[in-house]
C-alpha cells in the first residue's frame, strides 16, 4: 500500500484510486494491424520510474498522471497532464480483471 497525491484532493490511500495503465503513445493515423496491436496489447512494464494513468474513482473522479517507481512504489509526482497539441492522449484500458481486455 502507498499514498497517491490526487492533484485535486491531496494525498490519499491508493485504494481510493483505479490504476489505468502506463502512459502509451497513440499509433499513427492509419495504423497497420501490427502498429495497432502494438498499441493495444504491448507494454513497457518497466522496473523503474513509470508514467501512468490513475482515476480517483471513490474521490473526485479526476483522471491524472503519476510518476511512480515500480520497484519501490514511491510516487515521485502527480499532475494533470497538459492536453497535447492536435491529439489528446487517450487513457488506455488497463489489463485488470474487472475490465475485461477482450
Amino acid at each position: 500500500m502507498f499514498l497517491l497525491a490526487c492533484p485535486h484532493c491531496g494525498p490519499r490511500s491508493v485504494d481510493e484510486f483505479k490504476y489505468q495503465g502506463e502512459v502509451t503513445r497513440r499509433p499513427p493515423e492509419r495504423p497497420t494491424l501490427r502498429e495497432l496491436t502494438d498499441y493495444v496489447y504491448f507494454r513497457d512494464n518497466v522496473a523503474g520510474v513509470q508514467r501512468e494513468w490513475w482515476y480517483h474513482g471513490t474521490g473526485c473522479g479526476l483522471w491524472f498522471v503519476a510518476e511512480r517507481d515500480t520497484r519501490t512504489n514511491e510516487v515521485l509526482r502527480t499532475e494533470i497532464p497538459e492536453p497535447s497539441r492536435g491529439r489528446t492522449p487517450a487513457p488506455v484500458e488497463a489489463a485488470v480483471p474487472d475490465t475485461p481486455a477482450v
Binding site: 500500500m1 483505479k18 502506463e22 501512468e52 520497484r71 519501490t72 480483471p97
Partner: peptide, 16 residues
C-alpha cells in the same frame, strides 16, 4: 485472493 490492480515489482503485502 486477487492480484493488486496496479503494476509493481515490489513484493510486499497489503493490509486491505
Amino acid at each position: 485472493a486477487e492480484i493488486e490492480p496496479y503494476t509493481t515489482y515490489k513484493s510486499i503485502g497489503t493490509f486491505p
